[in-house]
């Protein structure tokens, strides 16, 4: 009998632990909630900007605004919005992912990129090299990356948005140095032959390089490199700026249909416009993104050296064309990594 009681009390105890912890998430009484669906490296950025905007909005309208943040790989987040994640604003790594939301779910107009200044891209970045302190392999530019014995860490462009910028920057260099697309393809083929690990995303690659100690050079966003150099591994890494790079333009947009449904259109629009204000632009620079505002950029000039940059629209014919040519099945990336 004792055992049955023991058994039952154990079961009851389990049930109680479990039921004691139910109860939904707290809702917000009055005021509005904005859901911002973003990609991985913007956490620090929006952690700084959201409270500032909430104060600004309260002053301006007297209304409270709170935020729900969702972070993940850019493509995965784009898909989530398409599949019904009710984002009021999308702040993703690639305009391509927002294009897909417009094309597949019709949640915002196809010409969304004209809604805000600077291609709806309030902050930019570029691709740089992160090397170990003292630059033991003497890496100065792209051509050093294809030397035998140099290990390059870059994520898989088929699964990571940031990795696509890396690939295109390398391609741009290869084309400029060799003078042709064939030379460019040869260059990236050699480059990826030097890659020992293809992580699925930018943050995974940084961890591989910084925490696991693998590789001689990490190809990454400038903001990630600065974060790693200044915060994660203070004094253990340094940044090398290549002779040519690419202007990475993360894009932001109001997901109009969702915002309409939630009645958050005004706040969502104001939120994204707020990103262009000097205060937000300063926060952007502090989060190691390149600000668009000329005055703020001037203040942070030492942090962001001038680099000649290609752009996705001018040099690659926009994301749709680049995605198809380089990263879709049977594209350039598949070709250069296929076994011969």
């Amino acid at each position: 009998m004792i055992n049955r009681r023991l058994f039952l009390s154990a079961a009851a105890a389990m049930a109680m632990t479990v039921s004691a912890c139910s109860g939904g998430a707290g809702g917000n009484g009055n005021g509005i909630v904005l859901t911002n669906v973003s990609y991985d490296p913007t956490r620090e950025l929006y952690q700084a900007i959201n409270p500032a905007f909430a104060t600004y909005w309260k002053q301006k309208t007297g209304k409270d605004v709170t935020f729900r943040m969702s972070h993940g790989g850019s493509g995965k987040q784009g898909r989530a919005i398409i599949d019904g994640l009710e984002a009021d604003v999308a702040t993703l790594a690639l305009a391509y992912d927002i294009d897909q939301i417009a094309a597949r779910a019709k949640l915002l107009p196809a010409d969304w990129q004209k809604a805000l200044p600077d291609n709806s891209s309030p902050y930019t970045s570029t691709i740089v090299f992160l090397v170990r302190k003292g630059n033991p392999k003497g890496i100065k530019d792209w051509n050093d990356l294809v030397r035998p014995g140099v290990q390059v860490i870059t994520p898989n462009p088929k699964t990571g948005g940031g990795a696509r910028w890396n690939f295109l920057a390398a391609w741009a260099y290869g084309r400029k140095a060799g003078g042709s697309d064939a030379a460019a393809e040869d260059y990236v083929r050699k480059l990826f032959a030097n890659v020992p690990v293809l992580d699925s995303g930018a943050r995974g690659a940084t961890t591989t390089f910084v925490e696991r100690g693998i590789g001689d050079v990490l190809l990454t966003w400038e903001n990630e490199a600065l974060l790693a150099e200044k915060e994660m591994g203070k004094g253990k890494f340094q940044i090398v700026t290549p002779s040519l790079s690419i202007l990475a333009e993360p894009a932001v947009a109001v997901v109009t249909e969702n915002a309409k449904k939630h009645g958050t259109q005004d706040a969502a629009d104001a939120y994204l416009r707020y990103l262009y204000t000097p205060e937000a632009q300063t926060a952007i620079a502090h989060a190691f993104y390149r600000p668009r505002d000329a005055k703020v950029a001037e203040q942070f000039r030492s942090q962001f050296p001038a680099i000649p940059m290609v752009t996705i629209d001018k040099d690659f014919g926009g994301w749709g064309a680049a995605q198809k040519r380089f990263f879709d099945d049977g594209g350039v990336f598949d070709r250069i990594t296929a076994k011969k």
């Binding site: 859901t35 956490r43 620090e44 729900r68 969702s70 972070h71 994660m232």
Partner: peptide
């Protein structure tokens, strides 16, 4: 992945890990 709303513990682990 909405913080504080639809993140389970394993997902929260991933988020923290990705925040370094």
């Amino acid at each position: 992945h909405i913080r504080g709303l639809t993140n389970t513990m394993p997902l929260h682990v991933e988020i923290l890990y990705n925040e370094y």
